[in-house]
Computed example of a mutant assay.
Amino acid sequence: MSTIDWSRFVTRINVSAPIETLYLAWATRAGMESWFVRLSEYRNNDGKERAAEEQVIVGDTYKWLWHGYSDEAVEHGQILDLNNKDYFKFSFGKAGICSVNIRPEEGEHIVELIQEDIPIDEQGKLNFHVGCKTGWTFYLANLKSIVEGGIDLRNKNVKLKQVLNS
């Protein structure tokens, strides 16, 4: 009998950076493109694209494209909740809902990502629980690498396939 809750997971990393810097890494196009995706197009309720440094608000939508993948690998979603400080929540396509909490712990700052409402059929278990947790683990490590040392670990060569960093 499995004791794994396939409908959710939590992954955390400590990052030596101000909470504001870590929050803006999620809440702005420039932030997301610095460590996560090659394109982060945030749009307001009127469909107008937000500027690179402009913070998103609840109800905004996004379009994300990844390095190492063609434009057909696109994710669309919506910003569901935030507090303009240390909490950011968004829909993540068929993979569920993601919440990001940034907080002090033991003298450091922790970035914690919770993905929940993951479908628990076989595809959901493999693609969204295992696949997304693997992806988020890498991307949170890349966030730490970018913020702490400026080294981008992402694969930006679309011809390289099945590598951990894309």
Rank of each mutant, 00 (worst) to 15 (best):
I4N: 10
G124F: 07
H129S: 08
M1D: 14
Y23Q: 06
I57P: 00
K159A: 14
L126I: 15
K144Q: 03
H67L: 03
L164Q: 00
E75Q: 12
L65V: 08
E41M: 08
N101G: 07
Q162N: 15
H67E: 13
G47D: 05
R38K: 12
S91L: 04
K125G: 13
S7A: 11
S34G: 01
E112Q: 09
L140E: 04
S166E: 13
L153Q: 04
L164K: 04
S99W: 11
N127R: 13
S70I: 05
F138I: 01
S7G: 12
L164D: 09
I4H: 11
K89D: 02
L65F: 11
G150T: 01
D121K: 03
M32C: 07
V130E: 13
S34V: 08
T134M: 13
L82E: 09
N127K: 14
C98T: 15
G47P: 10
G131H: 02
H76L: 12
N83C: 02
D152V: 04
N101H: 14
Y42I: 14
W35S: 05
L82G: 05
N127Y: 10
A27N: 04
E49L: 13
R29W: 04
R12I: 07
R12A: 10
K161T: 08
G77Q: 03
L80W: 08
Y42S: 10
T134R: 15
S99C: 06
E116C: 12
A17Q: 02
G47A: 08
G93H: 05
I151R: 11
R43Q: 10
V111F: 04
A73G: 02
A30R: 12
A30M: 06
G135V: 04
E41N: 13
W6P: 03
W26P: 01
V111I: 14
E49P: 00
I57H: 09
N155R: 00
E108W: 00
H109L: 04
P104L: 12
F92R: 01
K48H: 10
D121L: 06
V56E: 06
G93V: 07
A30Q: 14
I151K: 15
T137D: 12
E53V: 01
W64K: 00
V74G: 01
E122N: 13
D5P: 06
S16D: 11
V37D: 00
S40R: 01
K161G: 03
